[in-house]
């Protein structure tokens, strides 16, 4: 049944740090690699070596420019994938029951053998998290690497989504956002984590951490937060000092 569960036991999801993301697209590649080779229909590419290549991806990195009222413009890299919403509109529109939200961990999944490829779930998602695979004709979306996180055949450090495992900047975190004691929940609390499009009423599980204020925008006008900690550079005295001044005058 594509009704949403009243409550999920856990709410597994991602916390994405917009302050740390360097926009390298490594998570995009890791995601595509894992999800092409493992569970479900592969993520196909169309016209891969032609003039207009395109393909299915479950994770994409946008880059935005933010212009404040005063001060310099900021560039923010912005990874976007399924937010595993608590009130996922993509699930309830599904006519076949292929889309569902798991009671045990809140992951939103697609049963590909039930998907008729009508595309209505992709319309219902405000975030563009679902893409119909052009070759298979079934809806593809982030599974939170459900075939990694519970996989006893993998070493323990690999039992996280591929995007999290690969991120060289440590900008992606995985955990249970329903547990206020979890590391991700505490991160969200400490860094004022936010929802995307809260007005759409989807109650996303994934949270985004806003970029920290930059040093040159600090209220006290300090150029670098570490600057006061630096030792002042001592002017050399004696013969070396004389030599330094004499050479400088030459």
């Amino acid at each position: 049944m594509t009704s949403l569960p009243e409550k999920t036991e856990r709410a597994l999801g991602l916390v994405i740090d917009l302050d740390t993301c360097v926009g390298c697209h490594a998570c995009v590649v890791a995601c595509k690699g894992w999800n092409t080779e493992q569970y479900g229909a592969p993520l196909s590419d169309m016209d891969a070596y032609g003039a207009a290549p395109e393909g299915s991806f479950l994770n994409r990195i946008h880059t935005f420019e933010v212009t404040p009222d005063a001060g310099p413009v900021a560039v923010v890299h912005f990874p976007k994938s399924c937010l595993h919403c608590t009130d996922a509109p993509c699930v309830t529109v599904c006519p076949t029951g292929a889309s569902y939200k798991r009671v045990e961990d809140g992951i939103v999944l697609v049963n590909e053998s039930d998907c008729i490829g009508c595309g209505l779930c992709a319309w219902a998602c405000p975030y563009g998290a679902r893409e119909m695979d052009a070759a298979e004709g079934v809806m593809k979306k982030c599974t939170l690497c459900v075939d990694r996180i519970y996989n006893d055949n993998l070493p323990e450090e690999d039992r996280v989504p591929a995007c999290v495992r690969t991120c060289p900047a440590g900008a992606r975190h995985f955990g249970d956002l329903a547990d206020p004691e979890s590391a991700v929940s505490q991160l969200v609390a400490a860094r004022d984590g936010m929802d995307l499009m809260p007005e759409q009423g989807t109650a996303p599980v994934n949270k985004y951490l806003p970029p920290r204020p930059k040093a040159d925008q600090a209220p006290d006008g300090e150029i670098d937060v570490l600057a006061p900690l630096l030792e002042p550079v001592a002017e050399p005295g004696g013969f070396l000092g004389w030599l330094d001044r004499a050479l400088g005058r030459l």
Binding site: E54, S56, H62, F64, P68, G119, A122, E131, E199
Partner: peptide, 29 residues
């Protein structure tokens, strides 16, 4: 601004799209 959550910092404009070609989302929506 609400889509990115970056409205608290200022006005938001796309600088680089995630891909150079088209995709399902652009075609469909």
């Amino acid at each position: 601004e609400t889509a990115t959550g970056l409205g608290r910092m200022g006005r938001v404009r796309l600088l680089e799209p995630p891909h150079t070609g088209r995709n399902y989302l652009l075609r469909e929506m």
